Amino acid sequence: MKAKVAVFGILRFPPDNISDVLPHLKEFVDQTQKHDACILYEVAEDLTDPGLLRFSEIWPDRASLEKHLVAPHIKPWREQAKQYGLLERSFDSYDISSTAISV
Rank of each mutant, 00 (worst) to 15 (best):
K2W: 09
A3E: 10
V7S: 05
V7I: 12
F8Y: 13
F8D: 04
G9V: 06
G9Q: 07
I10G: 08
R12A: 10
F13D: 11
F13R: 02
P14H: 00
I18A: 12
D20H: 10
D20F: 08
V21H: 01
L22Y: 08
L22V: 15
V29H: 02
D30R: 13
Q31K: 14
T32I: 03
D36G: 04
A37Y: 10
A37K: 15
C38I: 11
I39A: 07
I39R: 09
L40C: 08
L40M: 08
Y41D: 09
E42P: 04
V43A: 04
E45I: 06
E45Q: 15
E45K: 05
D49S: 11
P50S: 05
L52N: 07
R54G: 01
R54Q: 12
F55L: 06
S56Q: 08
I58G: 02
W59F: 09
P60M: 05
D61W: 02
R62T: 04
A63W: 01
S64H: 03
E66N: 08
K67L: 08
H68K: 03
L69H: 11
L69I: 09
K75A: 02
P76I: 04
R78S: 06
E79W: 00
A81S: 03
A81T: 03
K82L: 07
Y84L: 01
L86R: 06
E88K: 02
S90V: 11
S90W: 13
D92C: 08
I96L: 04
S98V: 12
S98T: 05
S98I: 12
A100K: 08
A100I: 15
V103F: 12
